[in-house]
């Protein structure tokens, strides 16, 4: 894209890349490292877990080497209390007040719990966090979270890791129309066209992990996602033609024969 000023502004910081990556699901740190490089991402999520002395190498080393900003999440939390504690531990460990707030309702669907998420968001905003909440494709909840002071809203396209793409594009459009904070399509994307669609619908960025880390060739899929996000963003800014029921000739209608 030629418009070099088209940066994503999130939490007061500028990002040239609109592709936010997750790190879950990669078969090794080496594969992850190369995929992150190919994605061009500047912001990448990590989870917080009990320290295991047996584990060698850290995802943090990979991010540090590549100069990628770390975005801790609260994955695995089922209550607002757990999520707030996890965010505070992440702030202490990683020296960032950014958090991807994720409070899930049940293990089978991994769908976000809106009540617990909203409760945690209010508490974290009050505690000075830059809160990026993962939510269902619910325009009303998105608006409430924005009013509560969240720095973005992150509606899902489909359940985490499902690769089903964007199941309800209409709701995503409604969220985009109403939001004055960035809308980041998070979860459910399966392939490049899903990421392009998210951007065409007007999302400001996408966050994905599994689609890349569990692809047969993660590095190649990361590059594909990078291109798709850029293409989708350009298409959104370019303004697509309206859909028509019938053909509209693109050649002049003058007679071909005198």
């Amino acid at each position: 894209m030629n418009d070099t000023d088209d940066a994503l502004v999130l939490g007061g910081e500028k990002f040239a890349s609109r592709l936010i990556m997750g790190t879950g699901g990669a078969p090794s740190l080496d594969v992850l490292d190369r995929a992150l490089g190919a994605s061009g991402t500047e912001l990448t999520t990590v989870a917080m877990r009990r320290l295991d002395p047996a584990v060698q190498g850290s995802v943090l080393d990979v991010l540090r080497r590549r100069g990628i900003k770390v975005l801790p999440n609260t994955a695995g939390c089922y209550t607002a209390g757990e999520a707030v504690l996890t965010a505070r531990l992440a702030r202490e460990a990683l020296e960032t007040n950014w958090v991807k707030l994720e409070v899930i309702a049940d293990e089978r669907t991994l769908l976000p719990d809106p009540i617990e998420t909203f409760d945690a968001a209010e508490r974290l905003v009050a505690d000075g966090f830059v809160v990026l909440p993962y939510i269902g494709d619910d325009p009303a909840l998105a608006r409430r979270l924005e009013q509560a002071g969240c720095a973005a809203v992150m509606p899902l396209g489909a359940p985490i890791g499902s690769g089903l793409g964007i199941r309800n594009p209409h709701s995503i459009e409604l969220i985009v129309e109403a939001a004055s904070v960035p809308v980041i399509l998070d979860a459910g994307l399966g392939t490049a066209s899903d990421a392009a669609l998210a951007m065409e619908l007007g999302c400001d960025a996408v966050l994905l992990a599994t689609a890349v880390t569990r692809a047969q060739r993660p590095e190649l899929m990361a590059a594909a996602m990078r291109s798709a996000v850029e293409a989708g963003r350009s298409a959104r800014l370019a303004g697509r033609i309206p859909r028509r029921r019938y053909a509209e000739a693109s050649s002049p209608s003058l007679p071909r024969f005198a």
Partner: peptide
């Protein structure tokens, strides 16, 4: 006592 660190996730 809980001792946490960052791991791959999300």
């Amino acid at each position: 006592v809980e001792v946490l660190t960052a791991v791959q996730g999300g």
